[in-house]
């Protein structure tokens, strides 16, 4: 009887164990399977601002269930639809490194995130290296060829903006080399240029072109007045106004045809001289002479003053 009882107890234990194993396999011990990203690729990893990049992800998912794609980026923007394994990302305008991240999820949860870095190139403004002129001093109506050299001449988006305050550019204008026709009136004229690409504009460039004027400089003695009276050996202040389209090289003062003083030309057209009237008494000639830059044409004005002679005292 005892052995039968033992046998029954053994059977019960085995039956109990079998029951436990069977129950666990369907509920407690059942495993979850999330998607696994096996590949993540971008069509380009270095792009210009605003470029569009195709990004795709490959996933292993044993359950073959419907998957959700969660894309994120540190800049730029995704072009809908975005819940796809293959999407489009538009690079931002600012250059730099941007991280694109994707997570794929199924009913069991999210995959590990996967990221890739895409470098957006910084687009520089066009840089003007030099501008060359076929001539810097020309006669009225002459034509000058002007060319610009940029650090990068290959950018197809370049736009050349040529400007001038006199004369005119001959068509076509929007080129690195243009023709400028000098105006009919001599003077100093400014040629300016800015170059733009689709993003930025260069620093402005400006240079002066000289168009020769063969007119005599304007010269006028404002002081002293005609027929003014001075005492011999005294110092007289001579005020001269002188100007010319090409500027003044220098201004000279002569007393009775003897050079007294010279002054270099300046932007301000007013010149002040101190002259000593050491010549003989009587009618005395004061002449101001101005020489034009570039052409050397001379203009002059002349007045007469009276110098009253003295014997110097002590």
């Amino acid at each position: 009887m005892k052995s039968i009882s033992v046998q029954i107890r053994k059977l019960f234990i085995v039956a109990f164990c079998l029951a436990c194993v069977t129950g666990c396999s369907s509920d407690i011990f059942k495993s979850k399977e999330v998607p696994v990203i096996t590949d993540f690729q971008a069509s380009r990893y270095e792009v210009d601002p605003g470029d569009t990049v195709q990004v795709s992800v490959s996933v292993k998912d044993s359950k073959d269930a419907s998957l959700q794609y969660k894309w994120s980026a540190t800049g730029g923007q995704f072009i809908p639809p975005v819940n796809q394994p293959q999407i489009l990302w538009k690079a931002p305008d600012e250059g730099g490194d941007y991280t694109l991240t994707v997570r794929v999820s199924n009913a069991d949860g999210d995959s590990d995130p996967h990221s890739e870095i895409i470098h957006v190139r910084i687009k520089e403004a066009p840089e003007i290296l030099s501008v060359t002129f076929s001539a810097r001093e020309v006669d009225p109506g002459d034509t000058v060829e002007i060319s610009v050299l940029l650090r990068d001449m290959t950018d197809p988006t370049l736009d050349f903006i040529w400007e001038t305050d006199g004369g005119q550019f001959l068509a076509p204008f929007n080129l690195p080399t243009v023709l400028w026709k000098a105006p009919a009136v001599g003077g100093e004229y400014t040629i300016s240029l800015t170059v733009a690409n689709d993003k930025k504009t260069s620093d402005p460039f400006a240079e002066t072109m000289t168009v020769r004027s063969y007119a005599a400089p304007f010269v006028q003695i404002g002081e002293p007045a005609q027929n003014a009276v001075f005492i011999q050996y005294s110092t007289v202040q001579v005020a001269v106004t002188a100007n010319h389209q090409n500027g003044i090289a220098w201004v000279s003062i002569y007393v009775n045809d003897n050079l007294q003083s010279e002054m270099n030309g300046k932007a301000d057209e007013h010149y002040l001289f101190q002259c000593e009237l050491n010549g003989p008494p009587g009618i005395t000639d004061i002449r101001a002479e101005a020489v034009a830059r570039t052409t050397g044409v001379i203009g002059s004005d002349r007045i007469q003053v009276r110098v009253e002679g003295i014997l110097l005292g002590k």
């Binding site: 009276v229 005492i231 009587g282 005292g313």
Partner: peptide
């Protein structure tokens, strides 16, 4: 404030000063 030198003519003291000369007529005029 003129420099010293003759001829130097003063009229009624310091009422007027006529210094120097270059010819008779112009001295007369002044």
């Amino acid at each position: 404030d003129h420099i010293k030198g003759v001829p130097d003519v003063f009229i009624n003291g310091s009422g007027a000063r006529i210094q120097g000369a270059s010819d008779v007529a112009y001295s007369m005029f002044r």
